[in-house]
Design a protein around this nucleic acid. Sequence first.
DNA 1: TAATTTGATATAGTATGCAGTTATAGAAAG
DNA 2: CTTTCTATAACTGCATACTATATCAAATTA
Lengths: 233, 233
Amino acid sequence: MGDNNLLTAGMSMTEEQQAMPLRDAVFMSLRKAILTGKIKPGERLTEVKLGKILGTSRTPIREAIRLLEQENLVTIIPGSGARVSRMTVSDLQDVMEVRSALEQLSAGLACERITEEEKAELYEAYNAFVRSTQSEDSIMIADSDVHFHNLILKAAKNQKLGKILDGLADNIYRYRYEFIREDGHYEDLIREHKELYEAVISGNREVAEKSARSHIARQWSYIREHLQEDAGE
Amino acid sequence: MGDNNLLTAGMSMTEEQQAMPLRDAVFMSLRKAILTGKIKPGERLTEVKLGKILGTSRTPIREAIRLLEQENLVTIIPGSGARVSRMTVSDLQDVMEVRSALEQLSAGLACERITEEEKAELYEAYNAFVRSTQSEDSIMIADSDVHFHNLILKAAKNQKLGKILDGLADNIYRYRYEFIREDGHYEDLIREHKELYEAVISGNREVAEKSARSHIARQWSYIREHLQEDAGE
DNA sequence: TAATTTGATATAGTATGCAGTTATAGAAAG
DNA sequence: CTTTCTATAACTGCATACTATATCAAATTA
């Protein structure tokens, strides 16, 4: 079969698709392909084609595409097909404004709800972050940053908030490494994390929220800077 | 046909289903049925049954149910079917916390982005709200309150924010009339609206956010009060 | 030549069939 | 009378078949 080349070259079902509904496996597979840029913005998602690539019928593909639309990763034009969403700067601005508000909420709630156990975890994550900045590997830095914030989100103990923030994160996934300064001056980042960490540990809601806000603001300014360079696409 | 009795008695396709994909019509229809309590929490949604009632095949029903799941109106158990979600107090608390943060954002952004035209609209809406409180009809009061807040949301000019807040509103739809005091003392509500209106008009972001916050807090305390009475369901 | 119509093709929308799984009711055993 | 097992009915998951619609290109007309 000629399908396997595309399958191995591009997307594939995730390893552990046992006992998982096909639609979910397809969803995760497509989501990953979009987030990693394997399927590019503006590209069309045709049901039969994807079905051939992933080895399923149209039905699970359809359902997966509907879910992707909910996360704003694809845009469906009724009657015509689905395309990978093309985010405008204005769209991104919308997302970042909401993220800012919700990351503040996350930090604020965490202040009041974090357990001793979680404090220990957060301490670990904070140190891991500081270590990663020394490596100057922006992938590692970004990942440890995300981990740190996810722990705070977990400590906030608000499932709805978690779901929404996860969805928003997808929207800026492509830019996740770009808010790391290339020149290796991470003082601001470290300071913010330190501030945030200490505020959450000590329950200082006001400071925690302020740190979260400036953290997002910094991210956004870096992303926006990068968008200037692209200037089109 | 025996289907029409159920159709007219319970749910039905919305009037303007012309040129709209069936799945969307079904989605809106089911959504309405759930929000208005025509289908009750815990009740099972079977594809063939709904298909018979609404006069479609299973496919559009399936897709509509998937969308409803995204809005947390139904819960899908893989392999077994879909049921109307049963919200716990904790779930509601999560929703209200997020709503509070986002209504604040909405009010804050509106301060900076409202146009003269929108100011006039908002003025109208504010007056309509005050008038409605004199009527002591809690349905009318709640509706004019929602309208007032929707105008602010529109003035905030953030589509993402609008979408998310709409989704959250569905989660508390059942309780939308319950935050209106029964005893006819609406001073607090009117004062909050006046404060919020004037803050948005004059661009006083801090006051606007504070008003929005206390408005949601009031809503939540009334809803929670009411939940005590039910004490079970 | 430009615009408009028309027809062919591709693709989404919808319906239905089949297989496997889950829920249910009834019988048998305790 | 209760519990457990089993047979059956009902339902979802996935696939496929059919239908409606959109898109694009060629042809026809102004």
